[in-house]
Amino acid sequence: MPQIFDVAVIGGGIAGASFAYRVAGQRSLILLERENQVGYHSTGRSAAEFSTQFQSPWVSTLAESSYNFLTNPPAGFTDIELLIPRGSLVIAQRERAHLIESAFSHILSTSPESYMLHPDDALAMVPFLKADYVEAAFYDPMNWDIEVDSLLQGYLRLARRAGAQVQLASPVTSIHREGGVYHLRTPAGEVLCRKVVNAAGAWADDFAALAGLDRLRIVPYRRTAITVDGPKGVDLSTLPAVNEVSEAFYFKPESGRIMVSPADATPSEACDAQPEELDIAYAAHFLSESTTLSINHIAHKWAGLRTFAPDKRQVVGFSTQDENFFWLAGQGGSGILTSPALSAWAAGLFLEGVPPDELCKAGLQPDVFSPARLSGVKA
């Protein structure tokens, strides 16, 4: 008789992997990933930044609650540091200089060591910024690069150690429930389980529809990035990330080059996202406009999908239509930096029916991410 798992997790990105880490060992669990490798889509194309800048209140709370895990992960999780100090320089040109003060005041609530900078000091920090571009600036030291692959693999390593199975190249092509058991058809064969966790990222609504449930209007949005060579003689590893105050663009060191994104957010179908030429041009334009860099060659270009519910809050909890179907979706661009706390929230709801008390005490309402809030939502 084939094995019947307690739970099948759909999706091997950061959401599915972190959930598997929390639940494996307490339930028999299989993780089904549609691609030939985990983290292929959104997780593998993240800006890999840990920061509470420009975040919603609930994301800031989740990020702050994730910090201790990321700086002191469990034994056997990883052999390297997951957070690498980076710092963030927020800049504004003359037309937007008035926005700096309010942005700085907001940042102080979560990063009290931030401080205002004279434009000359900003140029000393990033010497290839244009002097006539930077009218106002501040610096936030509470910004880190995330070692994303090590984080993802750490979740999966401990999940497997606790008994989880991970099955690649296994998109679910059909699903039906019979006798209290889900039958999930994949190219690798049928998988049987009692509960399903929808951590399918950009495909979350599609998977729900495949299961006969209503879509929750969780929409993927494309974001583009390119890398270019930095200036000769500048140690890029010591530079901060640079964010334009109105979030028009950002750039940061990455693998010995400069990565820049136009911070685009274009609605997309669930797909293997590819960069559009216009967005590539915008990225190059913003970098040329704000720095003295000559962009003669684009070393690499890519796009990823960030999924959002209509109200931009994550979707975590059991479906109102099927008590055995659990949503873990709509993490937007914050899935990686919030994964320790959000996976603990999801596991609490899944296993005990209530989220962790410490996260509620941190200010999150028990129903803040409930799928019930999206019932009947129109596009």
Rank of each mutant, 00 (worst) to 15 (best):
S88C: 11
F207H: 02
F326V: 03
G212E: 07
L89K: 04
E190R: 11
D367Q: 13
A8C: 09
D6L: 08
V90Q: 04
P2F: 04
V260H: 03
R223A: 05
E147Q: 14
P2L: 10
S42C: 13
G330P: 00
A329M: 10
S65I: 06
D322Q: 10
L236P: 01
F207D: 02
A372R: 14
R306C: 05
G330T: 08
L210T: 13
E269G: 08
V316N: 07
Y40P: 03
A199C: 14
I91H: 08
G189P: 10
F104Q: 10
A136Y: 04
G44T: 13
S375Y: 06
V134E: 02
K130Q: 15
A24E: 08
D205M: 08
D140Y: 02
E35H: 12
T320V: 08
L236T: 00
S288V: 03
I146A: 08
S246E: 12
R222T: 10
S65V: 05
C271M: 12
V9I: 15
I146D: 06
F326D: 07
R161T: 13
A329W: 04
A346M: 07
V90P: 02
T43V: 10
A265R: 15
A24G: 14
T320W: 06
S88V: 08
I226Y: 00
N68Y: 04
D229W: 01
A265S: 15
S268F: 05
G180Q: 13
E277G: 01
S111Y: 02
W58L: 12
T238W: 00
F69E: 11
Q314V: 04
A341I: 05
S294V: 09
F69C: 06
G212N: 10
N198Y: 03
E113Y: 06
A169H: 13
D6Q: 08
N36K: 11
S339G: 09
N143Q: 09
L293K: 05
D145A: 15
W327V: 01
P141S: 10
H41I: 06
G25T: 03
I336F: 03
L236H: 00
E49Y: 00
D121T: 03
A17H: 12
D229V: 02
H297E: 12
A47Y: 01
E95G: 09
V316K: 07
S334K: 04
W203M: 08
S343K: 03
A208S: 14
N36C: 12
F369P: 11
G333M: 07
Q274N: 08
F54I: 09
G87P: 14
P85K: 09
A309M: 09
T238Y: 00
N324P: 07
P310C: 08
Q3P: 01
P253K: 02
E358M: 02
D79E: 15
S288F: 10
R222V: 07
F5K: 01
M259D: 00
Y282E: 15
P85I: 07
V316R: 04
D322G: 13
P141C: 06
T307M: 11
I295P: 07
